[in-house]
Structure formats: structure tokens, C-alpha cells
Amino acid sequence: MSCQSLETYLGVNGRNFQRQYKEKLSNFRYWSQGAHAERYVVYPKNLGPYLTIDETSLSNGELYTIITNKARRGKKGSIVGIFEGTESNEIIKLIHKHYPEQRRKIVREVTLDMAANMNLIVKKCFPEAKRVTDRFHVQKLAYEAVQDIRIKHRWETLDEENTAYKEAKEKGIEYQPEVLANGDTRKQLLARSRYLLFKPEEKWTLSQWHRAHILFELYPDIKKAYELSYGLCKIYNRQISPNVARAKLAQWFNQVEEVGFDAFSTVKRTFEKHYNTIVNYFQSRSTNAAAESFNAKIKDFRRQFRGVTDIKFFLYRLCKIYA
């Protein structure tokens, strides 16, 4: 509950109470990390064997890098460190300075996305830890490749409709777009198919099945792209060993090469760059969901207080709850 909301429920002056809480009641002025809080806050005692690392925005798009302890499940003791920005060299220096080497050696696994700076931070600061690339970031690349093909067709369809409309107008007749079996025009079909292409086919509704059937019949390349992304999803969903996963991924790479889609070739190159950390997922099936969940807590905390006007005080309150 925010100080401002007390004005509604208790009849107190919310602004005055917030000022008094900050200056007197909260001990904010005596915070041991207050002098450097806007640059970094560190809690070496919260280090554990399994960590996550991610970035989040606190105010006006300014990014902070956050390391959390997965075992604390988003409760007290979760925050290991918060660092201003995403510049890896500066964060590495701060971690080396404030986290003893012996403490850092207890870290066995860190889950992360595919950002190069995050990978470098973990590699340099937690050399004993296994790095695991989050499966959902990997799958997102494949989903986005499917959407790229859909969007390309949509722009082509818009151009064709605009040309047809112009020609009809010049002839003095009314333009009537083609209406498909489910009542969509081609433009509507491509726009309304966005969400079904993110879902596995067994979760489609009846109308989505009908729409997908028409879409795939008109645009077989979208069907092939969807099958590729769904094939990757099925590999991740299976309980298989890393060696089996390597074989399955190799087969998937061959399929990508056969279809020759530019968007999926980019996905394949990204896979090759992060191959070892992607395969590490199949050892423990760890994801970065804990980091995403903690980011959601921060966003909700920020929303309750209608944004962040004082970053240092916001970080203080965040650390009081989660560190």
C-alpha cells in the first residue's frame, strides 16, 4: 500500500506522511549503501548455487542489471546485486570488488538470455558456474521469424489491395476485396493469424483451426515456417538428454537449411553462437522464469507508486523487501 492511498482510507495527508516515512520512519538516511545506491547495491550474503541475471527498466527507460538468487523464489534474500546500466566491464569490476572469490565459487549455474554482455559477466565473475540460455528467448527467435514472413505477405497484400482500389476508382467502379471462406479478406486473414502462429496447434480454437487451414493453403511458406518453430518447441518439451538434444537440434538445423528462409538462417546463426549454453538447458531444464517473475514484481511495485521519481529511495524500499 502506498502512502498516498492512506489518505483515502485513514484521512491522513498522504504527501506529509510519505515525507515523514522517508525522512524519519524508514531509516533511509542511515542506509549503509545509500552513498552508491544509484550506481549499485550489493548483497554478497545472498549468493547461492543457482542465480539468474537479467536487465530491467526502473525509470524513463534507464536499464539496470539485476542478479537474483533462484532459491529465494522472489522473496526476502532474492536480490544479490543491482547495477546501473548494462556495461559489462564496469559490472565485472564491481562484482570482483564486492563479492569475495570464495563466495563466487559456490555458484554452480546461472540462467540468462542471449545478450553478449550478460554472458561475459557470468563468464568472468562466476567461472565455476554453468551458463544456461533461457529456452523462451531461444523459442522467441523462431516465433519472430514466422511473424517476419507473415508481415512480409501482409505488406504485399496491402500494396495489392491499394493498387486494385486505385484501378477500380479510375474505372468508376466500386472495389470489392476477395472474401475468404471464413469471412476474412486476405488482409484481415494475415492480421488475425498473428496469435495463432504463437500457439501450438493443439491449443487452437475451432475458428483458429479454420483460419489456419485457409492461411496455410494460401501461403505454404508460412505453414513451413510454423512447422519449423513448432518443431523446435517440441524438442524443448521432450524430456531428453543433452546428447539426444544435440542430435535433434542438428536435424532441425538441416530442415532450416532445406527451406532456405532468411529469417530462420539468422536464427540458425544465433544458435551456433550460443550452442553450448543452449544445450546446457537439457541437463537441468533451468529457465530464466525466476528473473522474469522478479522483473514483473518490480514493474508492479513501480506501478503502485505511479512511477519512480526518487531512484535511490525506490531501490531502498525494493531492497528492504527483497534483499
Rank of each mutant, 00 (worst) to 15 (best):
V107P: 02
F136W: 15
K76E: 14
N254H: 12
L141A: 13
I240T: 05
I66Y: 06
R285A: 13
E167S: 08
R194L: 08
R285P: 04
I173Q: 10
N254D: 14
P220Q: 01
I92N: 05
Q251M: 05
F271M: 14
H213W: 05
Y219K: 01
I235S: 04
K166I: 02
Q18D: 13
H213A: 15
R186K: 15
R306Y: 15
W252V: 00
L10S: 11
S229G: 02
Q188H: 03
E128I: 03
V42F: 01
A168L: 02
Y219W: 01
R72F: 15
N276D: 12
G48W: 08
K223Q: 13
F264H: 10
V259N: 10
P44A: 07
Q176I: 12
L218G: 05
I79S: 04
S88L: 01
R108N: 09
N16Q: 13
K70N: 14
I240D: 06
V179H: 02
A225C: 03
T163R: 14
P242K: 04
V80Y: 11
F198M: 14
Q239V: 00
L189H: 09
S32T: 14
R108S: 10
A168T: 02
K224P: 00
E55P: 06
K320V: 12
R303N: 13
I311W: 06
Q102F: 05
K45I: 11
I95Q: 10
K169E: 10
Y316V: 10
L206C: 00
Q4G: 09
I235D: 09
K268Q: 14
E90K: 15
V132Q: 03
D54V: 05
K97D: 01
I82H: 05
S241N: 01
D113I: 07
L249P: 00
A245T: 05
E101G: 12
K297C: 01
E156L: 11
L6F: 15
S241T: 15
A168M: 02
L47P: 11
E87R: 15
V110S: 06
K299V: 06
N46E: 11
A164K: 13
A290G: 00
K124F: 00
I214K: 02
L47A: 09
